[in-house]
């Protein structure tokens, strides 16, 4: 029974990781950008929610609604004025620029908010739990997982069912030819990064309610997110969810054996999956 419990906790944890990863997956799918600052942008979003919640004395869920357009704008500006200028055949500039951005955001937050641990407080919901067929699960982890599924479902709908999604896919296929269709790739990329930041804000909301955060935790979250994206198969959103769940379950199982092994098990699972399936579980196309 304890194993089923561990498994369920792991799956739910995977939901959080999938939320971390969904934005990355989208951005990679559209513009082949590997954003090393994504983890720090999630932490930035958490601080935005915290600031809004404190200043206006709001519940973090309400504060997040205000933070979402702010973060969309952050993503849009970042892409338009910085990232679009370094996208290209050479992989080095975007990697190094996002790496620099990561350090700047991390230390900027450190200057502004100090290294103290913070938390978003959502009231009694944090302690509530429900029983699912004999396994007791917290409402927050459950909500996180459900949100992850909804977010990925929504992203998929956007990607495959809307005019915007059509532009995303076409731009990803052939950046020059979309110009002949009247589509400006730089605008498409800016919107994609804006959406990725919206997802990052949702991830930040759950991150901040479920655990303490401080400016330094971005890179570790970034790694979990990337692991989820890579083992899920590049460009596949549902694959990203599966990847998140695999990392989450591995961490939970590892922790059940020895608490010191939690993080290590997640990383090892990543390596093992890639050794068996070099292109991940659900690769979208032959990149």
């Amino acid at each position: 029974m304890i194993w089923i419990d561990t498994l369920v906790q792991g799956v739910l944890l995977g939901g959080l990781y999938a939320l971390f990863a969904a934005g990355l997956s989208l951005v990679f799918g559209v513009m082949r950008l590997v954003n090393l600052a994504h983890g720090d942008l999630i932490v930035l979003a958490a601080f935005v929610i915290l600031s809004v919640a404190t200043a206006l004395n709001l519940n973090p869920f309400v504060a997040a609604v205000i933070a979402i357009p702010v973060m969309f704008a952050v993503g849009w500006v970042l892409q338009t004025y910085l990232l679009n200028r370094v996208l290209g055949d050479d992989i080095l500039p975007p990697l190094l620029v996002t790496f620099g951005l990561s350090v700047v955001i991390q230390n900027g937050l450190l200057e502004l908010f100090s290294a103290d641990s913070r938390k978003l407080t959502a009231g009694s919901i944090e302690a509530e739990s429900v029983s699912l067929g004999g396994v007791t699960v917290g409402v927050m982890p459950l909500l996180t997982f459900v949100s992850a599924v909804l977010v990925i479902f929504a992203l998929n709908q956007i990607f495959y069912r809307t005019k915007l999604g059509r532009a995303f896919r076409a731009t990803s296929d052939d950046r020059e030819a979309v110009g002949l269709m009247g589509i400006r790739p730089n605008n498409v990329f800016a919107i994609a990064t804006g959406i990725a930041m919206v997802v990052a804000t949702i991830a930040a909301l759950y991150l901040g309610i479920r655990a303490n955060f401080d400016p330094s935790i971005g890179p570790a979250r970034l790694l979990y997110a990337f692991e989820a994206v890579i083992i899920g198969g590049l460009g596949s959103l549902w694959g990203t969810l599966a990847g998140g769940v695999i990392i989450g379950v591995s961490q939970a199982l590892g922790a059940a054996i020895n608490p010191e092994w939690q993080i290590l098990s997640g990383h090892v699972a990543f390596v093992v999956v890639l050794l068996v399936r070099p292109r991940g579980l659900f690769p979208r196309s032959k990149d």
Partner: peptide
């Protein structure tokens, strides 16, 4: 220069 990720109809629509 058709878009491989798009269906025939989507290629027309775009």
């Amino acid at each position: 220069r058709l878009f491989p990720s798009l269906s025939v109809e989507e290629n027309l629509l775009i």
